[in-house]
Design a protein around this nucleic acid. Structure first.
Lengths: 148, 148
DNA sequence: TTTACTGCAAAGGGTTTGCATGAGG
DNA sequence: CCTCATGCAAACCCTTTGCAGTAAA
């Protein structure tokens, strides 16, 4: 999504376009690591040293209502997702990293169709998280039962 | 799961079995509505008027580490799940209710196999939430564009 | 010019922690 | 008996709110 498209999208929703909002939106949209509010704050601070967390929370709420991003609540804090297509997230229980995977995208899409058609539930969106150990953390853990 | 099995399970994990812990565990295990900490508190208070939230938080942590329940973080507060089998949760964005559905269980299971086998990610568990409107809330909303 | 956003500070609320007492094994 | 759980209170921290000044349209 170009900045021009982003501006048009926001105007479409009757939302005022400010430099802060553009910076926050782009920080999320141009990321794949599902940043937390703190991470967004750090990434935007260079250009807007006076920006506070309140503005970020406010803007993220606006962006979510406009259908640009999705909040992903976790136990400690929320993260923010820019990939709204049905897909699978891999969540490492060790390092906390969250990455999208292309594996199973079709399956999630079919699952969404199934739920939409076969249930009395009006589906808006979905979140599919697989929790476990990423390759790096799996390697550091349990050194294959090596003898002493 | 009988209370006897529950006690055995906890002992297996080297966890002390107290009346409070049994009450909290059963409040979650015998429920299907994914209760919040507050709801568990209210359900247990009759039998343990002096119990505090700190005990509930502590116990829920123990139960999760023992593999009996799973925390489901939401934006406002966490809920707790006793159905650890791969399945789909339906989350109403209006009333906040969360229910399990049997629809798509097979699909989630296959999806788990796919991720486990085709990725470098060591899967432990999964959470599949579909967000939208439950039948009741869908009915109250948008009265089918009826003319005035 | 009007309306709504930003920045700041304070409050809110779910969750965690420290410690003395009490109960489990 | 010794260790760990409970209950109580205070602390924590993420998030929200209220308000005065300021920028978007």
């Amino acid at each position: 999504m170009t900045q021009q498209e982003l501006v048009a999208w926001l105007r479409e929703w009757g939302v005022r376009v400010t430099p802060q909002r553009l910076a926050i939106a782009e920080a999320v949209l141009n990321s794949t690591d599902h940043p937390s509010v703190q991470q967004i704050y750090e990434r935007v601070r260079d250009h807007f040293p006076s920006m506070t967390l309140a503005t970020i929370y406010s803007t993220l709420g606006v962006l979510e209502k406009s259908g640009l991003i999705q909040e992903l609540p976790f136990a400690k804090q929320s993260r923010y997702e820019s990939n709204l297509e049905p897909h699978v997230n891999l969540v490492c229980v060790e390092c906390g990293n969250v990455v999208d995977t292309e594996l199973g995208q079709e399956a999630v899409l079919r699952l969404k169709s199934l739920i939409s058609q076969e249930s009395n539930f009006d589906v808006a969106w979905q979140r599919v998280d697989f929790h476990g150990w990423c390759r790096r953390c799996a390697a550091n853990r349990a050194p294959e039962a090596s003898p002493a």
